[in-house]
Design a protein around this nucleic acid. Structure first.
Length: 481
RNA sequence: CGGGGCGUGGCUCAGCCUGGUAGAGCACCUGGUUCGGGACCAGGGGGUCGGAGGUUCAAAUCCUCUCGCCCCGACCA
């Protein structure tokens, strides 16, 4: 039996990625208990294991949002239709997917409310009341909340009718300041996603066609999933003065002149859990980056006789105490499962490190650690564990990023003509870099022929130097989620 | 929204074609033996077949409608 066959045996009933990636994705989510379907069309329940990942994401991103001077606030779930309708382009963009509240109890409402698909409208309305002078600027507010978009086709985490996110909304005195903010938050996203989620991204502006409804300019970070499809992982919009004009958000400048503010908005969603699954997962299941893994190390005690059990339990207790506050550890002392069964379950659930503790280990005063990503084993003495385990976890975090980066780079091709691009997508997936000048017709044609869309024009053009003959920047195309 | 597929104990599925009142494996419960890569034996509980309507003496099975999910496309975080 080959190694791969031997490994495959470890997991029961999980479709291989190469057989059917979509099915693998859905199965791994349900079997690992990240989420489940809810009795509401297009909605899911994020189960405790999945929600814990989101909580870690929130805490790591929230820290960065606050470090860049923003404050959290909360705006209502419901938005009056009249407010949403003010910005034509915006409302047109979202009209097909808003849910409406028409009744309060048995009474029909005078004006219907929409369940927010995003909060530009209601926040714009409030900003017009709060901002009077240049001294009130900038306004730097973020909110963590749920939003609803009545999607026709839904997929767990990637596209659900209701999802969780943070949306930042800022107002500035000048366009330059707003643009700085847009790029600052794009960089916050890039750093967060690469550092904490170990997902490499390309960051840059979208084309005119792909931008947010109502924005001057949209920037995004784009990641590559293991099936070769791109996933938008976060967006940062320069809204210019569109919303300021329709919501009448003005201030008096130092010369006493009345001016419209310049705004930005930026968001990152629970979709990133989907990105995590599809970037790192393999045929055995999830591989969670230690920084956001709910359980960083799982302890599996092993014994045969009662006296062994006592010794192992005592040893495990010492181990647990020695790691308290340093590593998120869970001792899996469930009686009804054998060690082998637990190994498989924790691999499916993507726990970065497994610590096996049996009589042999206790005799040596050590534990056997096994990495989820490489399966590499290492015996670690109990007294070294508090130092060694955090280092090991950082190694894994780095290795996951490196593996994803290599995959992404191997699947980024360079071409110099639309014909080459089309030939590429006839054969395979991944990112394709092509020198590009904004041209909606050509972009539409590519989309129709290949299914690929312009994902972004990377701000960092260095990886593509020499590709463009006439100085036009390189754009990245891919089929995308 | 177009094309395709699927809804039967918690899960995976058989039964449907050729109607006769529901079955397997896993999971679950009890007892015992086990426990270093998904243990074993014995006993046990649980479904009215997605929903509604129709045909029929009789419907999981045939017909109509409807809801949901999955896959592939068009739209989006």
């Amino acid at each position: 039996m080959s190694d791969t066959q031997a490994q495959k045996q470890f997991v029961e009933d999980l479709t291989d990625q190469s057989d059917d990636f979509s099915r693998w994705y859905t199965e791994v989510i349900r079997k690992s208990q990240l989420a489940d379907y809810a009795p509401v069309r297009g909605c899911m329940v994020i189960r405790p294991y999945g929600y814990a990942i989101w909580e870690h994401m929130q805490s790591l991103l929230d820290r960065r949002i606050k470090a860049t001077g923003h404050q959290n606030a909360y705006f209502p779930l419901l938005i009056p239709e009249s407010l949403l309708a003010l910005e034509a382009e915006h409302v047109e963009g979202f009209a097909p997917e808003v849910a409406w509240v028409t009744h309060g109890g048995k009474e029909k409402l005078e004006e219907r409310y929409c369940v927010r698909p995003t909060s530009e409208a209601i926040i714009g309305h409030m900003y017009s009341r709060w901002i009077e002078s240049y001294r009130d600027l900038p306004v730097l507010i973020n909110q963590w909340c749920n939003v609803m978009r009545w999607e026709k086709v839904t997929r767990l985490f990637l596209r659900t009718a209701e999802f969780l996110w943070q949306e930042g909304h800022t107002a500035h005195a000048t366009g330059e300041e707003a643009q700085e903010e847009v790029l600052r938050m794009l960089e916050v996203y890039r750093d967060f996603v690469e550092t904490e989620l170990a997902i490499p991204v390309y960051a840059g502006p979208k084309s005119e066609m792909e931008k947010f409804a109502g924005a001057d300019m949209t920037y995004a970070i784009e990641a590559l999933m293991r099936d070769g499809k791109a996933l938008q992982a976060g967006t940062s919009h320069n809204l210019g003065q569109h919303f300021a004009k329709v919501f009448d958000i003005t201030f008096q400048d130092e010369q006493g002149r009345r001016q419209y503010v310049y705004q930005t908005s930026w968001g990152l969603t629970t979709r990133m859990i989907g990105a995590l699954i599809m970037t790192h997962g393999d045929d055995q299941g999830l591989k969670l980056p230690p920084h956001v893994a709910p359980i960083q190390a799982v302890v599996v005690p092993i014994w045969r006789k009662p006296e062994e059990r006592a010794a192992v339990t005592e040893f495990v207790n010492r181990l647990r105490h020695s790691l308290e506050g340093r590593v998120r550890v869970w001792v899996d002392d469930r009686d009804q499962y054998t060690p082998g069964w637990k190994y498989n379950e924790h691999e499916l659930r993507g726990v970065p490190v497994r610590l096996e503790v049996g009589p042999r280990d206790v005799a040596q005063g050590a534990v056997m650690s096994v990495r989820r990503d490489t399966r590499a084993k290492e015996s670690i003495r109990l007294e070294h564990l508090p130092e060694r385990l955090p280092v090991l976890l950082e190694d894994i975090q780095r290795a996951l990023f490196q593996a994803a980066l290599e995959f992404r780079d191997q699947n980024t091709s360079r071409v110099t003509s639309v014909a080459e691009l089309e030939a590429h997508f006839a054969e395979r997936r991944g990112f394709v870099a092509l020198p590009w000048k904004d041209d909606a017709d050509a972009e539409t044609a590519i989309k129709q022929k290949t299914g690929a869309t312009l994902r972004c024009i990377p701000l960092d053009q260095k990886p593509f130097s020499g590709l463009s003959k006439d100085g036009a920047p390189v754009a990245l195309f891919a089929r995308a989620y």
